[in-house]
Nucleic acid binder design. Sequence first.
RNA 1: GCGACUGUGGUGAAGUGGUUAACACAGCGGGUUGUGGUCCCGUCAUGCGAGGGUUCGAUCCCCUUCGGUCGCCCCA
Length: 441
Amino acid sequence: MAYQMPRGTQDILPKDISKWHQLEEMIRQFTYVYGYDEIRTPIFEHTNVFKRGNDSSDMVNKEMYTFTLDNSSTSLTLRPEGTAGVCRSFVEHKMFGEPDQPVKMYYVGPQCRHERPQKGRQRIFHQFGVEVIGAKHPLLDVETISLGWSFVSALGLKDMKVLINTLGDDASRDAYRAALKEHFKNDIDSMCADCRRRYEQNPLRILDCKVDKEKEIMQNIPKMQDYLNEESNAYFQQVLRGLEELGIPYEVDERLVRGLDYYTHTVFEVVSVNKEMGSQSTVFAGGRYDGLIEYFGGPSISGIGWAMGLERLILACEAEGIELGEEPALDAYVLCLSPQAALMSLRVTTQLRAAGYRSDMDYLNRSFKAQFKTVDRRHAKIAVLIGETEMEQGTVNIKEIATQVQQTVAMDDLIDVVDHIFEAEEESTGHCACHAHEEEE
RNA sequence: GCGACUGUGGUGAAGUGGUUAACACAGCGGGUUGUGGUCCCGUCAUGCGAGGGUUCGAUCCCCUUCGGUCGCCCCA
């Protein structure tokens, strides 16, 4: 193959696009009902939007597509996540000054991370995310989780689990961090290289370590809960109570620490526990960030958000046997029975299309039999047959596939007859075929 | 970044150091000269991811490289 797509990228092909259309449609419905508006930010930003001072996550350290153009000195980065760009935009456009606070936004779009691909992980993937900025209320944390939870529930996903934890406010976190460093002080030299780095940069992440998890030192680590100040603890308890109020099942996971370093208070992950999912099973995840808006030069206000991996969402649906999308059937297929009839076929096809019927015809001079196979394959509701006889007489043959009934009608009556067939079908099936011609009137 | 497995037509796949690369599905043509979905017949890879090397000869052996899959790490 002379040309192939870069590692970890994917073409979303026409045969699969209906899945994406369905998800995008549902995203619009849910965000509409919840009162969240879409924001679209650039696919690349200045590198320092993503790479902030003390950030020690692998994602920003070594998984970013960062580049500098030859004739420029500015470093740009393909966005690896959505939150940073949204926060930058929030501040840049002074949205903190808008009358309605908090500002509730959502986004859908590709993200780029230079990782080794595997099941549920690609270098370009798509996220649907929400951000609520400008208020700090535990029930807002609940609201955002509720949006995502009801979204996956509406899809029919059942094998889902909410894992939740709190990191507390800065004071609580500092106290906990100090306790962790004290706990690991004497043993850090025996731990893995990553942990030694984490020890210096972000001790919380040691809790995530898989390498050293069997060691004795990991068994009796101090608990975050013991270092939460009263306010942080109360906040977390209210979040949990809100989830209970809405009937959203959750599991407190004291070891849950998110990868991005900007999180404070609530952090959560919604995972699929379905066996088919492989190791990348988190469908959506996020948390509250107290300091991020200020970091970008805005006021000291808080935000909360999450991001959902759409490819992973599709995997989760497949794992649970949920069919997404439907290949759209053809309303009419025009059979051209001789090369001489091609012009007339095109005219008829065009008339059908103008009337709002999804229509197509043959351009390969294929046999009658082959054209009829296309009628089947594309689930056309009617076949329109045009040959030399019809050309001479100025008529067309319309065959309704379901009933096998065929009638010869004058060209002038074509659309009237087709309308009639489709109206009759709607009545019998109760389905509303969405034809443009019905809305024209 | 590390590891394991893997790469033959539109698809699923067999196969071998040596003239024509099985078979099946799909497609196309025909049997049925203008009515499909069954059946039967025919046809369909100058090519075995790419680039080198070994050899009289390589899809098959060796090297490199690019993909894919899954796991680790990390994360949606």
